[in-house]
Design a protein around this nucleic acid. Sequence first.
DNA 1: AACAGAAATTTGGTATACCAAATACGATTA
DNA 2: TAATCGTATTTGGTATACCAAATTTCTGTT
Lengths: 217, 217
Amino acid sequence: MNDKALPDQIADKLRRDILKGALAPGQQIKERDHATDLDVSRTPMREAIRILAKEGLVLLRPSRSPIVADPSFEEISDVIEVLTALELRSGALACQNATEEDITRIQAMQDHMDSCQGKIDRIDFFELDMEFHMAIAAASKNAVLAETHSAFVRRLWRARYLSASRKDSSDRVKRQHHDIMQAFSDRDPEVMCAKISVHLDALLENVRDKYAKESEV
Amino acid sequence: MNDKALPDQIADKLRRDILKGALAPGQQIKERDHATDLDVSRTPMREAIRILAKEGLVLLRPSRSPIVADPSFEEISDVIEVLTALELRSGALACQNATEEDITRIQAMQDHMDSCQGKIDRIDFFELDMEFHMAIAAASKNAVLAETHSAFVRRLWRARYLSASRKDSSDRVKRQHHDIMQAFSDRDPEVMCAKISVHLDALLENVRDKYAKESEV
DNA sequence: AACAGAAATTTGGTATACCAAATACGATTA
DNA sequence: TAATCGTATTTGGTATACCAAATTTCTGTT
């Protein structure tokens, strides 16, 4: 019955709700209520909330209801800074350590993303985007690095999702991905790092725009 | 009564036991037994175990007792790789963002370490060492980066502790710290990154030596 | 004696019950 | 009427009870 453990299933559901905005930033997540909603007990619900807290999506407060995180621009910017450090390192290592199979497989992932563009749910598209970046990190063959990187990608999911509202950005992202992939299959760490920097700088600027617009409303 | 939450207290105790070796690598941590040992119930014990799992000190296995992690050299090496990426970034940022007070305060920490050398417990000395590195990371003014960096420093605590048995290494570490501090007070990111690299490369080699010796026993 | 299978035990996963801190609400009084 | 104190309620923290998967042990058969 259990493809995954119950807390993970609950965390998945809550995560999607948060990212879609069904659970708004600042909103309380009362473990009792949400547990009965999902027809589970408080114990796995608690654990699911801790998982999301670890991912930065939820804020734990001592003796108070956890709330959906509402990060400031500075916090998001800090996270992007860390992600950049991790992704540059993993990109360089991937050039060095990836197998040919890794490269063709990740190339295939990218092709799949291209073909799916516009045909699938925006959230599903972001899943693919995340998987692309995470697959490159995994190709570094440093499991710890890949895992840490994944954690930060997940942590930025909502910010990415919201900041990608700009229509033109999707084409630009596609081009940046192609640049990264090109450097990767050339196994050129310098170019790859440069392209990753471009990609993540663009992300930062997109997020900055979004926050600027939000504050002027 | 509660300075900290109960799960944190339990995690602190277990963490020290693991790092000191009272809980040997590979040993099972049965939540029922350890809970009764510490006179708490399974619920906070479970949570404490999850905290340590997040820190990489404990390994969770589906439907099996968690066990104390027994990292291979490759795993430690991977962790050092990540720590390096984080520490280089935070060093460079610290050169840029640290206040003068930060620098004098961290300088004072180093002086204190020097004066304590040989006079205090090795564990306490390692606490000071960790605090030195973590203070620099905090001076980057990127809270997320500092926090992540701290997590990895803690994760390496045991390996550092075990690998520092070589008598001469302590002088060398002292010199490396001085080099880092010099570059920091000069606010010279390039030199600082170079010195940090030297320091962490030395750590990696120390750990490598220790694992080599262990395997030949 | 060796092996297969079943029953008992162990152990993590989940549900529920109980408690204490925090909050909200209402009654009482100035 | 307003302020304040006390009580009821909400809610997270903790303990315990129950369950199911996995392991071990015991037993009966070959």
